[in-house]
Design a protein around this nucleic acid. Structure first.
Lengths: 216, 216
DNA sequence: GCAAAAGTGTTGAAAGTACACCCATGA
DNA sequence: TCATGGGTGTACTTTCAACACTTTTGC
């Protein structure tokens, strides 16, 4: 969405997609932002996005943009909503279909340091004043992420295939931004049917070995 | 969406909106469909829809189309999802943002009889084989409608401003397609804070008068 | 007084929440 | 043996589900 469209001269609106890419690092829920060059958003941060090409589905466009910005593929992307206010994009009449995804920060550490300096992770709690209507998109994404966390496998992207219940709980605590009771969490998540024990243990931890689980 | 676009020649996708308009008549949940003329969908039924103009928001486009097809305005339209498969529209590369609404059948009785014969209400349970990907859109809409019914005021569009709890329960039973316990329903809906008593009663009913309520 | 719909409570089950101690391992 | 994190159960509260009779009105 940082290309000029000149779509003002067309009679109809064009389609873009913006992707809210979350990760968790050092106990913080972070979102990937890119720094813009073009006026009127010079040096403003924005969600990664781009126009949907004629020969690709909107889902595929979101995947493409995710991969372009992070190098990560095969991540589950979830459609959030369409944002279609008239003035939302000063470069033309563009409707954006927003997606969100959770990606493990170590899977893309290389990419974010290799990439130019105008791509960076930001603590979600501190982000404000994004370009376009991206503050609104981000708020919607955070809210939907929290709502779905306990009822879906979206968090799988943030953990290795095999993980401990404590790993999972810590992840949930960061995303939900609150403490969770260990016993209640274990009861609920094991009853949910979303994960199952793999029958192995994680050793070498200077403490009692933890059972490993995986998403089904 | 029943206009040729020729958007194949553009590089990017265009935006349309399709509106799933529900009503309840004679104990059935019905959806408004229009009969198409153009190949390859000649005589197929489809959801009302159309392209989003450059100067209107997607929300406004959905409202406009709702009003064009039903004559009803000031109805709450809820965004459902965007549908963006490449081949979903044989006339061009079009991404549709779908909405749904509930409108009282008596508010638009005139309109549907005045309108030409290729607009009609269909029992949702019997609808199949719609044009485009409209079967999928309809299924998604029905599912979301059922899910939100108890937690929002969307059903307000289907009732007069003042209604009895029995009216509301009958409506819910039709939409959810199951019986609801009267006492549990009354407890839950009155605790929800979505409605409140207006302090009046409906008289002249050959039975005990019922208290009237309204949505807040 | 009777037909017709309005209105109202209780009990049991299930799910959610709060809370504290013992266990297995590596160092 | 101790430091570290792993693992477990119970009591209370809240929510959901099942279920039947009395009340008020018009005729």
């Amino acid at each position: 969405m940082n290309k000029s469209l000149g779509h003002e001269k067309y009679k109809y609106a064009a389609v873009a997609t913006d992707v809210v890419i979350f990760t968790v690092v050092r106990g913080e829920l972070k979102v990937l932002l890119i720094k813009m060059k073009k006026k009127p958003y010079t040096n403003k941060w924005a969600l990664p996005g781009g126009l949907v090409h004629a020969e690709e589905s909107v889902d595929d466009a979101a995947k493409r943009i995710l991969e372009e910005k992070t190098g990560v593929s095969k991540v589950y992307l979830k459609q959030l909503a369409a944002f279609g206010r008239v003035g939302r994009d000063p470069f033309g009449r563009v409707v954006s279909v927003a997606y969100f995804a959770l990606v493990s920060s170590d899977k893309l550490k290389l990419k974010t340091t290799e990439e130019y300096s105008d791509v960076a992770w930001f603590d979600v709690k501190k982000v404000t004043d994004l370009a376009y209507d991206h503050d609104e998109i981000l708020r919607t994404a955070v809210s939907q992420l929290k709502g779905e966390l306990m009822y879906s496998k979206i968090s799988a992207g943030l953990l290795p295939t095999e993980f401990t219940l404590t790993d999972l709980q810590h992840l949930y605590e960061v995303i939900l931004n609150r403490n969770i009771d260990k016993r209640n969490f274990r009861k609920k998540i094991q009853q949910s049917g979303l994960i199952k024990a793999v029958g192995k243990q994680r050793k070498g931890t200077a403490s009692r070995p933890a059972a490993l689980f995986k998403f089904i």
